[in-house]
Design a protein around this nucleic acid. Structure first.
Length: 283
DNA sequence: CGCCAGGTGCTGA
DNA sequence: TCAGCACATGGC
């Protein structure tokens, strides 16, 4: 089956640090699992070739939503194009889309991603799924679902330590318990606006000022979120503050004013541009 | 080997 | 509100 890519570039989007479970599959393809559905996606020009463990009629809405293929966000992206710096980043990251992820997987993944590098996060999450997810056989390979919060709530932090989670192990287990117990109700957060959702998610163990913005952006489609990690901090200080010291909070406040209500899109373009062309943003 | 990574929570000013 | 610190681990 084929879907119109509508300008989406798979590689740019799936290797942009928003998500950690896709693997290269052939020349222009990626394999992964959403929920219990195994997917093989391949870029073929203006189309995306799709196959997977469900009937095509079920794959289409799944992928359309995940990749936001009908997002109609062209105007939102354009609204962030307010100066030559972001303009260059946007040019360089054409085809980048904001993925719409499942909230719990997104939340748990970014707790794992704190003070960590993306390659290692991928390995950690892979081991987590193998240990606690459900097996889904497909075409001779056994895939694993992302573990439910209720499952991880019963896990022992020491077991996660042995999987290489370091000091994040107890955070992840406590976060799972908060979510599984309904203390933090992710289904309710879906219906909340940015401010209330932010306050609610900040109550989760291991979720601070940066992780919460990632989760709001990638898991709840709140495009006014603006995560400031070490990459974005560097880019912003260099490009907008003449290299001066600046707290993450002030960078975020500036970005919201400067780029407007879709500043999260600008953030993702800057993040990707900085990682793929560091020379443009060297300190 | 040393530096670094999509930081957080805590403490003391 | 902010700076400074400890925290585990492995990629490069």
């Amino acid at each position: 089956m084929f879907l119109p890519a509508r300008g989406c570039n798979l590689r740019t989007t799936l290797e942009s640090g928003q998500t950690f479970r896709w693997r290269p599959w052939g020349p222009e393809g990626f394999a992964g699992i959403l929920g219990t559905t195994v997917l093989h996606l391949a870029q073929q020009g203006s189309q995306i070739a799709v196959s997977g463990s469900e009937a095509p009629a079920r794959l289409e809405p799944l992928i359309t939503r995940y990749l936001q293929l009908e997002d109609g966000l062209a105007r939102a992206w354009a609204s962030t194009d307010v100066d030559p710096i972001i303009h260059a980043a946007l040019q360089q990251t054409q085809g980048l889309r904001l993925i719409r992820q499942e909230p719990w997987e997104c939340l748990a993944s970014f707790i794992c991603a704190t003070f960590n590098n993306i390659t290692r996060v991928e390995g950690m999450i892979d081991r987590l799924c193998r240990a606690y997810g459900r097996a889904v056989p497909y075409r001779g390979t056994i895939w694993f679902t992302f573990p439910e919060a209720a499952t991880l709530a019963r896990a022992d932090a020491r077991a996660l330590r042995r999987l290489g989670f370091g000091y994040r192990a107890p955070y992840l287990v406590r976060a799972a318990r908060q979510v599984a117990a309904g203390d933090v109700d992710l289904a309710a957060v879906v219906r909340m606006g940015y401010v209330e959702a932010r306050e609610t998610l900040l109550r989760v163990e291991g979720v601070g000022e940066k992780v919460v913005e990632c989760v709001l952006l990638f898991g709840f489609a709140h495009y006014e979120a603006f995560p400031v990690d070490v990459w974005i901090g560097r880019v912003m200080r260099r490009a907008y503050f003449r290299g001066r010291r600046m707290t993450d909070r002030r960078i975020r406040a500036f970005a919201r004013r400067h780029f407007g209500p879709a500043c999260g899109l600008a953030q993702q373009a800057l993040f990707h541009a900085a990682r793929t062309s560091p020379e443009l943003f060297a300190p």
